[in-house]
Design a protein around this nucleic acid. Sequence first.
DNA 1: ATCGATGCAAAAGTTTTGCATATAC
DNA 2: GTATATGCAAAACTTTTGCATCGAT
Lengths: 149, 149
Amino acid sequence: MSEKELYDKLKIVVKEKALKYTKQRELILGTIYNSKIHLNAEQIHKKLTISNKDDQVGIATVYRNLLFLEETGLVLSISLDNSLKRYEINRHKHHDHLVCIHCGKIVEFINQNIEKEQEIIAKKHNFKLLSHTMHLYGECKACSKIDRV
Amino acid sequence: MSEKELYDKLKIVVKEKALKYTKQRELILGTIYNSKIHLNAEQIHKKLTISNKDDQVGIATVYRNLLFLEETGLVLSISLDNSLKRYEINRHKHHDHLVCIHCGKIVEFINQNIEKEQEIIAKKHNFKLLSHTMHLYGECKACSKIDRV
DNA sequence: ATCGATGCAAAAGTTTTGCATATAC
DNA sequence: GTATATGCAAAACTTTTGCATCGAT
């Protein structure tokens, strides 16, 4: 999905709800889209503060729009152990996360065997499975080469 | 593991580190042990405030000891989506969590097929797997019977 | 012109820290 | 007696909210 396609989606969502398409909304969504890493609220705000000297975005607006974007399904959040919520664009391809505990690198993956097992587990315990999160924590190749105390 | 065995473990850990065995440490650990549900810091503090009218435990002491107990491996914490860290006694039986999104009920489970797949995934991406969390969110049997708007 | 969105600052909620005192050893 | 642990209050950090104003429609 291109950046423009994403903004078009936002425009549709906003119109459907009879809300307004603002520069700030677009900037926040664009910041998430253009980041190689999963940013948290404060990091998004900082990026905007640096890149948009002229047109400042308040931290409250960032929080309000992150809630909004998550509600609409345009973005997803992940809560890793010991860190704040981080945000990613919802590409509607479900995936789980493999995280390097040293450098924070995140690899997205999906495994159908695990997805199937999860359904079986839920069924066994009489739960209707609605969603799940799976986070694998480890040491990536690059970080394994660095000596640590 | 009985409550007494748990306190004995705490005594050993404390002695090893040349630290002190205090009533507060025991009370906090005991509160986690005796709770049927996974409590967060504030809930632990509240329980102690109610049950120990005579011998009050400060919230700072709760936080300091939760960190300490986690460091020593006596307790584990879980970070569920949209909620504060919750604590459980470390029974050294690794497990994952199935959570009811309505009532908060938590079922612990372990599935060897998934554990194996996780290793394979990490290897494929050149990660050394160190730990993981898996949280399945759903609706438990009891809650499925309640009409919701 | 209207009503939602924004920025600011204040408030709320959660966790950490400094310091004097208490207490385990 | 000594050093760690505690309680309290203050501070730090993260997120939410109230309100006047701005701006999209």
